[in-house]
């Protein structure tokens, strides 16, 4: 069975949900089936938010939350202190974090790989706002290889509510700057 389950952790307003949607679009363009959906706590800017995504080579029928992710993506470094982002991760999974720190400094007992990128700085440089969702998708493509970066850029251009080119550039820069550590 091919199914890959992904969990995004972000804060309301950072675009974690949009990141999952863009990923679903990119996966679909590469010929697979995809599903992406959010789980909000309080409907409030800054509140911790999760988004889930599933990738499979056949239509996806299951709709419960993702409890055993293969990949975990963290859009906001402050969440590492507040939320157990690696909860339920499958053995050999991949953790991708937006942070200034290096992969060696991020703990993940069961991970096969840890990837980090300073998406906030990239977003501020290119977009002028700390919305890290498109940049983090570049990191996702690099660390997991589940989608080609070209497809991701294409989906970003198509689905960005604003500044499609800048968002694509942010993802591209993140793709090259992401540090991946095999654990």
């Amino acid at each position: 069975m091919f199914l890959r389950e992904i969990r995004f952790h972000g804060r309301g307003g950072q675009g974690a949900v949009t990141a999952a949607q863009i990923l679903a679009d990119a996966v679909f363009r590469e010929g697979k089936y995809s599903q992406a959906f959010p789980f909000f706590g309080a409907e409030r800017r800054g509140a911790p938010v999760m988004a889930f995504a599933r990738i499979d080579d056949r239509p996806i029928r299951v709709r419960s939350h993702v409890y055993e992710p293969d990949y975990v993506v963290v859009l906001d470094p402050t969440l590492l202190e507040v939320v157990k982002v690696t909860e339920g991760m499958r053995e050999g999974g991949i953790l991708i974090v937006n942070t200034e720190r290096n992969p060696e400094d991020i703990a993940c007992e069961t991970c096969s790989k840890v990837a980090t990128v300073d998406a906030t700085t990239i977003a501020l440089d290119i977009l002028g706002v700390p919305i890290t969702n498109t940049a983090i998708l570049g990191a996702f493509a690099k660390a997991t290889g589940e989608v080609k970066i070209e497809t991701v850029l294409d989906s970003i251009r198509r689905m960005s509510p604003a500044k499609p080119e800048e968002n694509a550039r942010a993802a591209e820069r993140a793709y090259s700057e992401t540090k991946v550590l095999e654990v």
Binding site: R11, G46, A47, T78, V82, T120, P130
Partner: peptide
Amino acid sequence: KTGGWGAF
């Protein structure tokens, strides 16, 4: 304490 939530 929501003070830790922002980037600015």
